[in-house]
């Protein structure tokens, strides 16, 4: 049975996914496809207060990840790179 998963792989997957979220540029990429976090004007028929839509939640999550995880990600990536250099 080929072991697809393991603790190490889980950590790698999570770190890589977090990197992938954090690397997305707000100005160059997300604003073009309309996923920027700027406050949008509520259009006709759109509800104003409760931003319960999945897209809005995703945008919020990505913004929070980018804000919160920037400095920890640098540390984690450095540690993993050093580990791979010496023991990988």
């Amino acid at each position: 049975m080929a072991m697809l998963f393991g603790f190490g792989n889980l950590i790698y997957i999570i770190v890589l996914l977090t990197n992938a979220i954090a690397i997305l540029s707000e100005d160059r990429f997300l604003a073009r496809i309309g996923w920027s976090n700027t406050v949008q004007q509520p259009g006709f028929g759109q509800q104003v207060g409760g931003d319960a839509s999945i897209k809005h939640k995703l945008i919020n999550l990505m913004t929070s990840v980018r804000t919160l995880m920037r400095i920890p990600l640098i540390l984690i990536n450095t540690v993993i790179i050093l580990y791979e250099l010496f023991f990988g």
């Binding site: 049975m1 697809l4 998963f5 393991g6 603790f7 889980l10």
Partner: peptide, 13 residues
């Protein structure tokens, strides 16, 4: 160890 970590990671995911 393999089975335990695989099953645990599966539940975690």
């Amino acid at each position: 160890g393999w089975t335990a970590s695989a099953a645990f990671v599966m539940v975690a995911v």
